[in-house]
């Protein structure tokens, strides 16, 4: 019996889908059986980032409405040997086509076959959010170092804390620009974690490679040489229970030189 993790944020465009794709990929790289579930009905794009769009035949709404069996709708990621699958969202249906009860049932049955079910949540706190959270055991909240994103993350954490079946959420801070943080032009990691007071599970740099990779349908986590990839792989290892220290800010982005300077007390 696997576990289901919902990736959520409140605010749109902070990197939920990118995080879902990369955490899923990184877990599969660790040899886990993973099913990605896109619950953003009407605005699906997890399939695009994964490069699986062309292989979609059925979708989540087809499964829920009984037009096909779950396994018929799952799209296999050929880069992995039977480890990574995607259940795509419907592109056409109405958001209310699925109920939270149906979602829970669906996720529960996926948990029978997969080690991890990663649920990509739509923006907002309405119907789509409730669907995405319905079957989850754990939650990861994604935010960027911006006041409005942190505010929405706080709102979502408040809602998640009321979900009896969901463990206390963990935090990913995405799109960090270390020079802006150091200059105080962006909220820093400490400020964000004390404000939200939940455990940090990872920080990811703002990295053009992430966008390039997504546009090619190759999640960055597949590329072993990028900082962002290491960040996502570290998050996956922490999910698996390893205690991987956080990358120092200077290593999240940029070289190690500035860290050395700091060590020697040079400003």
């Amino acid at each position: 019996m696997g576990e289901a993790i919902v990736i959520t944020s409140g605010k749109g465009g902070v990197g939920k889908t990118t995080t879902s794709a990369n955490i899923g990929t990184a877990l599969a790289l660790q040899g886990k059986r993973v099913c990605l579930v896109d619950t953003d009905i009407g605005l699906r794009n997890l399939d695009v980032i994964m490069g699986l769009e062309n292989r979609i035949i059925y979708d989540l709404v087809d499964v829920v409405e009984g037009r096909c069996k779950i396994h018929q709708a799952l799209v296999k990621d050929k880069r992995f040997e039977d480890l990574l699958y995607l259940l795509p969202a419907a592109q056409t249906s109405d958001k209310t086509a699925v109920t939270p009860e149906q979602m829970k049932e669906l996720v529960d049955s996926l948990k029978q076959d997969y080690d991890y079910v990663i649920i990509d949540c739509p923006a907002g706190i309405e119907h789509g959010y409730r669907n995405a959270v319905a079957g989850a055991d754990k939650a990861i909240v994604v935010t960027t170092p911006e006041v409005s994103a942190v505010r929405d993350a706080d709102r979502i954490i408040g809602l998640l804390e009321k979900e009896e079946n969901v463990e206390p959420p963990k935090l990913v801070i995405n799109r960090i620009r270390s020079h802006m943080m150091k200059n105080g032009d962006m909220l820093d990691v400490d400020e964000i974690t004390t404000h939200l007071s939940i455990d940090l599970i990872g920080i990811v740099a703002d990295d053009d490679e992430v966008i390039k990779a997504s546009n090619h349908g190759e999640p960055i986590a597949l590329n072993p040489n990028s900082k962002a990839s290491i960040a996502y792989r570290n998050i996956a290892r922490r999910i698996l229970g390893e205690s991987v220290p956080l990358q120092p800010l200077d290593e999240v982005q940029g070289g190690v030189f500035s860290k050395l300077k700091k060590f020697f007390g040079v400003k």
Partner: peptide, 25 residues
């Protein structure tokens, strides 16, 4: 507890909150 954005905590008498009130709370 933490009173988070969008949450309201009410007491009839005095209130002792062991935790924060975040912006929007």
């Amino acid at each position: 507890r933490i009173v988070r954005s969008g949450q309201v905590l009410e007491a009839t008498g005095d209130l002792l909150l062991i935790g924060d009130v975040n912006p929007g709370g």
